[in-house]
Amino acid sequence: MDGEYTPGRPHPALAGYVLRYLGYREHSRTPVLRRQAAAASCTLIISFGPRLRLHGPAGPLAPASFLAGMHDAPVRTEFVGLQHGVQVDLGPLGAYALLGRPLSDLTNATPQLTELDVPELAGLPGRLAEAPGWRERFALIDDALLRRLDASTARPDPEVAWAWRRLVADGGRVEVHELAAATGWSRRHLLTRFRRQVGLGPKTAARVLRFQRAARLLAPAGVHGPGPSDTASVPVRSIADVAAACGYADHAHLVREFRALAGCTPTEYLVEWG
């Protein structure tokens, strides 16, 4: 397979909302199958090539340009021939602000951009396809997202934003009752507001964040979704080391979580991405 990948930096005003841009052009004469494990982010795929086939919780799909909402299950992607487009990784609170709708409606879903009722996004594939290069394409995305952010009145609750940042900082190793106590909310109220604005409940979000940290430690060069890497701070030598570093009860616990969130064992994951 031949591939070209061009990273882009979102406009500074999008900091905290948009994590990264990645332009891509891939071509393969044989089918390419990829495992997309659960990750603590949402992804926009703005395609100006053939459709990507998806196999996941929403069933087999072949959307054009689409949004992948927060997932707590793996998705398999498949293509043969050409893939050409831009991947935009969004923090869940950024997706909530930009889309102006409950992210819980999009959990484990991959709606096409035309189904989101957001004209700024729906028109991007054609505009990007006509742009002469990646710099111009990234500028068009900046403009569309900045206009959308200015038009949207949705903003996360400060309590939800704090709880999300705390979970991210602790790699998912914090109890829900601690988050609720710190916000002054009941557990039920935190669960309702958090799920609406993040897409997953706080306990499930913590589970995904902990898995994502384990995946990064296991295969630092792999694809685990955007986010800070702490691989240098933990002397990992084995899968058992990863389990201990991330707070899993034992090796078997880590294996169960990889099967649930990546659809494979840690060993199989390491073979694919290590």
Rank of each mutant, 00 (worst) to 15 (best):
F48I: 08
A62R: 14
D142K: 05
R210G: 02
G94Y: 03
V208S: 06
L116M: 07
R193K: 14
L106R: 01
R256F: 02
E120P: 00
G172Y: 08
R256H: 10
P63F: 08
R210H: 06
C42I: 11
R196M: 05
L191F: 10
D105C: 02
G274S: 07
P10Y: 05
G201P: 06
L103K: 08
D170S: 15
I239T: 06
L82V: 12
L149Q: 07
P220R: 08
S47W: 05
L14E: 05
P220A: 07
D250L: 10
G8D: 05
R196E: 14
V223S: 06
A73T: 11
Y17P: 00
R213G: 03
T204P: 01
A244F: 01
F194L: 14
L14Q: 02
R259T: 05
L54F: 15
P60N: 12
E272M: 11
L44M: 10
P60Q: 14
F66S: 15
A97Y: 02
H11S: 09
R193G: 03
D250P: 09
P158H: 11
R210L: 06
P125C: 07
G49R: 14
E120D: 12
D143T: 14
L19Y: 04
I46F: 02
P111Y: 01
A244D: 13
R29M: 10
W162H: 13
V198N: 10
L90D: 10
Y21E: 04
C264G: 04
